[in-house]
Design a protein around this nucleic acid. Structure first.
Lengths: 184, 184
DNA sequence: AACATGTGATCAGGATTTTAAACGCCATTT
DNA sequence: AAATGGCGTTTAAAATCCTGATCACATGTT
């Protein structure tokens, strides 16, 4: 976990000196020097100040820092991260594999409880999306087409088309889906 | 940037008390209390210790904190088209949703019979791929990492890395996977 | 050559985090 | 009801981070 090396790297990439960055971040050059030599572990507050001045998000900083170690390819079931759907959609669960920020492909484990609905305000975002129903039933509206899909059935369309998901059945519906690029 | 709230959230999600987490992380309960109340900004070293004990990567922690006419969209189960894997891989079944040629996203319903193996001639092609195991077990090799995944577990990696799939179990393994761009 | 300016590194001291122990609260047990 | 044990919070002291000044070195200017 070589924070110093990474900080130096992003600072240099911006063509900033320790003093310049320090001034922008409201810290001192000495602090940056110590951090870059890993002689101190900065507080999150300090690191955030520095990255705000770069600028770079803390998440991006750490995703690229952790990649330089042993890359992460595999995920336990509990490592899927729950993400929030756009607007509350009646208890829909969207569990995303990994950290989509750093990838062009997003895989989701979706669960639509009985009656769940992404709402009539049809969604719109760039990319393509596809999925397959594992269990239960899901009613999907794309553009002017509506269809109810059951286990083993799938969908594939351009995400820019207005679309909507709704569970018309009495049991939860589970869907594995993929999007490209990530949209949330 | 409410680190305290987020830390409390992930700690609770794991069902850990401040003391339990402190013990695992090599810190004290008081520290965690102060952090969760945002009365101090933890050093990155401390935060990493805490997240290692959760466990959760720092990157993941911060990504979730910062807050037609007759187009074909739907597919019956029998409309998935069987495609051939590169070389015979011991009876692997790859069933593709739709005609990937016209899309940037490819969704596959894969079945690996007992003993199936994509072979030691590790695959290499452009794009990213991800998947989730529905049933059975699959051993996946990516670069120099090997891992056996079971139901609910997933993978996500750059397809240019050499990789290999093998079913080491006694029952068929079913995987839903996505690739971008299509590679077969 | 002497000077000015820029770089990153170092050091004592002040500021902040972290510890270790005590505190108050609530629930369960004796 | 008193005692026990778990919870999160608080507090003084120890450990660590951060500052402000200084140092050594490099580069370019007069």
């Amino acid at each position: 976990m070589d924070i110093g090396k990474k900080l130096k790297q992003v600072r240099k990439a911006r063509g900033l000196s320790q003093r310049e960055l320090a001034a922008r971040a409201g810290l001192t050059n000495g602090t940056i020097s110590l951090i870059e030599q890993n002689k101190t572990s900065p507080s999150v507050a300090s690191l955030k100040s520095l990255l705000d001045a770069i600028p770079m998000s803390i998440a991006e900083f750490f995703t690229t820092i952790e990649e330089s170690g042993s890359a992460k390819y595999f995920y336990r079931a509990d490592e899927f991260t729950e993400i929030a759907p756009l607007g509350d959609a009646g208890g829909v669960s969207l569990r995303q594999l990994g950290n989509a920020m750093t990838h062009t492909l997003q895989l989701l484990d979706e669960t639509y409880p009985k009656g769940a609905d992404t709402g009539p305000e049809l969604l719109c975002h760039a990319g393509e999306e596809a999925g397959i129903v594992i269990s239960g039933q899901i009613e999907i509206t794309v553009e002017n087409q509506v269809r109810v899909l059951g286990p083993g059935e799938g969908y594939l369309f351009d995400s820019r088309l207005p679309h909507r998901f709704r569970n018309p059945g009495d049991v939860p519906c589970k869907v594995i889906s993929a999007c490209t690029p990530p949209t949330f």
